[in-house]
Amino acid sequence: MSKSIFSRIVSGELPAYKVAEDADHLAFLDITPLVEGHTLVIPKREVDYIFDLPPAELAALHQFAQRVAQAVREAVPCKRIGVAVIGLEVPHAHIHLIPMNRVSDMNFANPKIKVAEARMKELAAAISAKLPPEGETGAKGQATEPAPDSKAARETSSAKMPPSAATAAPASDAATDQLQAMTKGLFYMSESDAPLEAVSYAAPEGELTDAALLKLLGQPAGAPVETKELTVFLRNHTADNGVLGNVDLANRYKALQMFMKQELQDTKVYRVGEGPQIQAFALGKTEDGKLAGFKTVLTET
């Protein structure tokens, strides 16, 4: 009997955009998805019909799928994760997890979308970064943030951030709430590793000139402002072999970067002031016109 396509993925004969794996289960992105983030969850043991699985194995599969669903919901903006078991296309039991904003997103008669390879890799990394530890699931599908396993991350709490005269708006909307969760425990490596702090500011009036930006942020008038792309600003933190030396931690920065590029408009990083300490604000516009993102401090001597 020939192995199923999914069994060949399990054995490594075929590639896949993997998002989660344990001893008995595997989750990976569907390469012909209904929507971005469409994920398949399978038992590694090949069984054609899902309800032929012994009760304990069926329960374990769904528990694994729950963890993956929470990660998908954290990484891919949606109202909830739809669940489907079809079982006719591949003779290997599997669960579809589909980010959905409307009932029609679950219609398998819809045309499949095409997602570029780079985007698939980005999505897989973002979902993987949000996977809650085994046995830890949060309320309402929110995954518990794992503590980054690095010396620099453990020392983040001791990093000092100079006070700013600006008063950020309370993080009350979905975008800023998500930013608070995603920046928790993250830091920016410079000569002093300062934490990333989620911020939200009221919508500026008129054009966002340097003068208007400085006023909004509570920075001194006339302070120098330098603009950078977010991907350039975070490039050393998102690289798997970068300065962090921790792939899982790098994936969290990738997820943050992807969220800001996808959910905020005109995202930029503003470096304000001159050394040795420079305040940095990564900001983009929310749907209601606010500026949201994160701030940190760079020490350059």
Rank of each mutant, 00 (worst) to 15 (best):
R45K: 15
E46N: 07
V47Y: 08
D48V: 15
I50V: 12
L53W: 00
L53E: 03
P54M: 03
L61N: 00
F64Q: 03
R67Q: 09
A69D: 03
A69S: 15
V72H: 01
R73H: 14
A75D: 10
A75Y: 07
A75L: 09
A75G: 11
V76G: 08
V76E: 13
P77K: 05
K79W: 01
G82D: 07
A84D: 10
V85K: 03
G87V: 12
L88Y: 12
L88E: 13
E89A: 14
P91G: 12
P91D: 12
P91I: 05
H92D: 08
A93S: 15
A93G: 10
H94D: 11
I95Y: 07
I95A: 02
L97C: 02
I98R: 02
I98K: 02
R102F: 04
M106K: 07
P111H: 07
P111C: 03
I113P: 00
K114M: 04
K114L: 11
M120V: 00
K121V: 05
E122L: 12
I127T: 08
S128Q: 08
S128M: 07
K130P: 00
L131W: 02
P132K: 04
P133T: 05
G135I: 01
T144E: 07
E145L: 14
A147V: 14
A147D: 10
A147K: 15
P148K: 05
A153T: 10
R154I: 08
T156Q: 13
S157C: 01
K160D: 03
P163C: 05
A165Q: 06
A166C: 07
T167H: 11
A169G: 02
P170N: 05
